[in-house]
Design a protein around this nucleic acid. Sequence first.
DNA 1: GGTATTTGACCATA
DNA 2: TATGGTCAAATACC
Length: 332
Amino acid sequence: MQLNRGAEGGGRGCGVPDGTQLRSRERELVAQLHELLFPSPPPPSAAGGSMSWSSSSLSADLFVERCSLPVEAPASCGKRRGRGSKRVREGHPHEEQKQRGGGCSTATKAARGSRRRKEGTTTTTIVTTVPDFDGYQWKKYGQKQIEAAKYPRSYYRCTNSIDQACPAKRTVQRNEDGDGDGNGGQPKYTVVYISEHSCKTAEAVAAPVILETTVRTKSLAAPNDAVVFSSSSSAVSTGTQSPATSDITWSGCTVAGANPTPTEFAADSDCWEWHPSPETPAVAAAALLQEMDFARPIMSPVHVAATDGSWINDLFVNESLFVLNSCQLFGF
DNA sequence: GGTATTTGACCATA
DNA sequence: TATGGTCAAATACC
């Protein structure tokens, strides 16, 4: 499961900060800076298309975070638009069947595998407003209108599924209640991750930034009893994807011994409250940047329910990266 | 021309 | 039998 990258990244020598107080303080500073940088919707130049989803994922995150434009479907969010079109079959259906199904060898049929998710398959469900940025590269291989669902479901597999036989897949489906009413204009998507990545990619080792995510983990034993909690926002970014951060070294980290509960996480979220500064945004932002220690990653734990029902640290947010990108994006 | 996406059909599973 | 998941041709974009 890719959300574990943060935890996996913890093995790369990132130490624990000086304690929860320091982390809380740093988070508070980031929150203040964030508010300073984005007191109002972004300027038209930022939202007018100069940023693309692929050129800088973090920039895109910011765009999505602040823009109320609805995102119709994950597939249409990318730089490319509308590739392909309605397929017009020329051959007769029966001939087609001969050519495909009829001509299929037994081995080929077997290679196609099961059509439905087998019980016991590792799946993780998250609800996010930006399903595209999770640090991995996905190739869309199908889309289907699901029964009783308002929006179609898109099927993705890891781009390394062939090269490295990576079994990771995911499905993305826009939530019906995520039409933008009552949630800031941002549609929400349910992303189901199926199987874990076995591949090694540059993107995969970078910790994501989750700004606003609801994490839902389904128990295999009781799929209907989903554990749901909301944090604050979701967007995923990687250093490799963001040119603005190409010279920044950072990594995901783990905090030894930390095993917070969802309640503790909610308490963490409260740290994001802040009191407006009387200073001008630019001055205050500069002061905050000075005060913050960017020598090491700033971490915020994101807690995900494990399949056994226990809560684990799943990844950590590098907020300094977020801040630095924000500053570059808006000319600070 | 290469690659990514769309989309209807096929097929396995519940 | 219904439906979710996958395939692969067609198509668009770079």
